[in-house]
Nucleic acid binder design. Structure first.
Length: 269
DNA sequence: ATGCCTAATGCAATTAGA
């Protein structure tokens, strides 16, 4: 099974690119971020025609997350993170699909730092860590996928020294990311490619894609019950070179089939 | 420190992105 995450940066403006990529990559489950669309303008008909069912949590102009599936019913388990009833941003949606819990997230950018937006990012991260702790405690197979707006290490940014004061690379944000991982999550891309330069975002500015001046900020995290099923992982970086494309590229993993339940040995009579 | 580019809103210029 192939599971992907893609920050589309406007699901309506990006619809031709999204459909082209779905057709080419054939992912089974997809988490989308930055829909930038109110719920009633989500392009569900075009997505159904492409063979996918979907659930989504939109919002006018900003944010917005969705989960697509072509392999089975999407049983929504949550929209919005617990811990702050006043949080109006659409940044989290969660569902059970084919026996896997999929949490699709769009973590706040947090710039400028310091400031209220950075404080919001840290608070949102704390709420994510709390919820992720509850999830991983169930022992279920779980994927947390999305735009985390964090480069975890120096390897994940083309010029680390220029990003030290940025909300995407600040020490307290990276520390939060590793507090999350320390619960037992596997960073799928890094686990399979420990030494590679891997980017998932290239700024529209300064010809960043052509210079490969990128960042790795879109991640797929696997709970222990799933980590053993990880077979391959990658970034569809070429999509970033398409016309009218997002500033992010799709990121994906392949999971082996659910391990068949071990047959109980016959008890001696 | 700011612009560089892009989307959404809504029709100019602002906000936000990262």
């Amino acid at each position: 099974m192939k599971v992907a995450t893609y920050n589309v940066n406007g699901v309506n403006g990006r619809l031709p690119v999204l459909l082209r990529w779905l057709d080419e990559a054939e992912p089974d489950i997809v988490c989308l971020q930055e829909l930038k669309s109110p719920d009633e303008r989500f392009p569900i008909e075009a997505i159904r025609e492409a063979g996918y069912d979907a659930i989504w949590h939109g919002q006018k102009s900003w944010n917005g997350v969705a989960i697509l599936s072509r392999v089975g019913e999407i049983h929504e388990t949550r929209r919005g993170l617990p811990g702050d009833p006043d949080d109006s941003h659409s940044r989290y949606i969660e569902a059970a699909v084919r026996g896997i819990i999929v949490g699709g997230l769009y973590l706040p950018n947090g710039n400028p730092r310091p400031g209220p937006k950075f404080d919001y990012k840290l608070r949102w991260f704390d709420r994510l860590i709390a919820h992720a702790g509850e999830l991983i405690g169930t022992g279920l197979p779980i994927i947390l996928a999305g735009d985390f707006n964090v480069m975890p290490t120096e390897r994940d940014v083309y010029k680390p020294e220029r990003w030290l004061d940025d909300a995407l690379f600040a020490p307290e944000v990276r520390a939060a990311y590793f507090r999350l991982l320390d619960q037992g999550w596997t960073d799928a891309l890094r686990a399979l490619h420990p030494d590679e330069t891997i980017y998932t975002f290239w700024d529209y500015f300064r010809n960043a894609y052509a210079r490969n001046a990128g960042l790795r900020i879109d991640h797929l995290l696997l709970s222990p019950a799933l980590a053993g099923r990880l077979r391959s992982a990658g970034v569809d970086a070429h999509v970033r070179g398409w016309e009218k494309t997002s500033d992010h590229a799709p990121v994906w993993i392949e999971l082996s089939d659910r391990p068949s339940r071990r047959r109980k040995a016959k008890e001696p009579a």
